[in-house]
């Protein structure tokens, strides 16, 4: 398949950024096309922009005000939202960061180790295990969640962060194994051989050659792990029932859970806070993200 060309993340790679085709001077059809694309983009992003604007508006103005501007912009919603839940919001952020940090470390270590074996080493039934690995990418988490819960309950790990971090240390996010296999296959084997002649074993080659050469793939893995784990709701909802351990998504959800009137101002303020890191990573890591999805079809 064209999108899974080995080494696409590597080196110069295909040019995904510059315009293609016959460069024609920008006549009227061009202007019209740009106008349509910008309008459609605005329409798509309008809910986000509106939420950002509304998070600075007094509560009563949020209702029945589809516009963005207000005379009374205020940061009051952020002050209120921060302390509106049983714990201050930075506790939830801290909890999320612990889970996210552990997941990133786990994915980087375990997936790159496995990827090296699949990309560079020979072992029995390699094709079979590779197929199994690809199959686990497709596996819905809902199929395994009940026995996992039973297992972690027996280990007394419910209401700890372990059920969210330990699986990552065991390379269960097979997406990233696949991503790194694709990448490592694009690194010239001559480098491995040169290192071997210089006395490196497999761990030496892995650590001194493959890892430094794979930084784009590792960056993609780290960014995607951050975004997915930060957004992840299902497993955090199931394994964390103690309000002291709530992560950002689980806490945010309790805002709108009750039957009482939702305080939209503070809710929007905290929603903006929860989306800000993703937006930041998106801006900083766009190149890696786009190459990452173009290579493996990640979301």
């Amino acid at each position: 398949m064209a999108t899974t060309e080995p080494g696409e993340l590597h080196g110069p790679g295909p040019d995904l950024d510059s315009p293609r085709g016959l460069a024609r001077p920008g006549g009227r059809p061009r202007v019209l096309a740009h106008l349509c694309l910008i309008l459609f983009g605005l329409l798509m992003l309008y809910p986000l922009i509106w939420m950002l604007a509304s998070s600075f508006k007094p509560g009563e103005e949020i209702f029945s005000q589809p516009g963005l501007w207000s005379e009374n912009f205020t940061a009051q919603n952020y002050v209120e939202g921060w302390t509106a839940l049983p714990r201050p919001f930075h506790i939830y952020i801290l909890n999320s960061l612990i889970v996210v940090g552990g997941s990133i470390v786990g994915n980087l270590l375990a997936c790159s180790l496995a990827a090296y074996a699949f990309a560079r080493l020979e072992f029995r039934f390699k094709r079979f295990w590779f197929a199994v690995m690809l199959g686990t990418i497709m596996l819905p988490i809902h199929v395994v969640i009940v026995p996992q819960y039973v297992l972690f309950a027996q280990l007394d790990w419910i209401n700890t962060f372990w059920p969210l971090i330990v699986p990552k240390l065991l390379a269960t996010d097979a997406f990233f194994i696949f991503l790194m296999v694709q990448f490592i296959r694009g690194i010239p084997k001559e480098l491995d051989e040169a290192a071997r002649i210089d006395g490196c074993g497999h761990f030496g080659i892995f650590w001194r050659i493959i890892i430094p050469m794979s930084t784009p793939a590792l960056a993609t893995t780290a960014i995607f792990t951050f975004i997915w784990t930060w957004n992840d709701f299902f497993s955090q909802l199931i394994f964390l029932a103690d309000p002291d351990l709530y992560t950002v998504p689980v806490a945010l959800r309790t805002f709108v859970d009750s039957n009482t009137q939702t305080p939209w101002g503070p809710v929007f303020a905290m929603s903006v806070v929860s989306l800000a890191p993703i937006f930041g990573f998106f801006l900083a890591g766009q190149r890696y993200l786009v190459r990452g999805i173009a290579t493996t079809g990640l979301k």
Partner: peptide
């Protein structure tokens, strides 16, 4: 591409679901 791609990154989050509810 960035403008159209951004919703994919945010779409699975609780914050966007909350926004949709409003």
């Amino acid at each position: 591409r960035s403008v159209y791609y951004l919703p994919s990154l945010l779409g699975a989050s609780v914050a966007i679901a909350v926004l949709w509810r409003q």
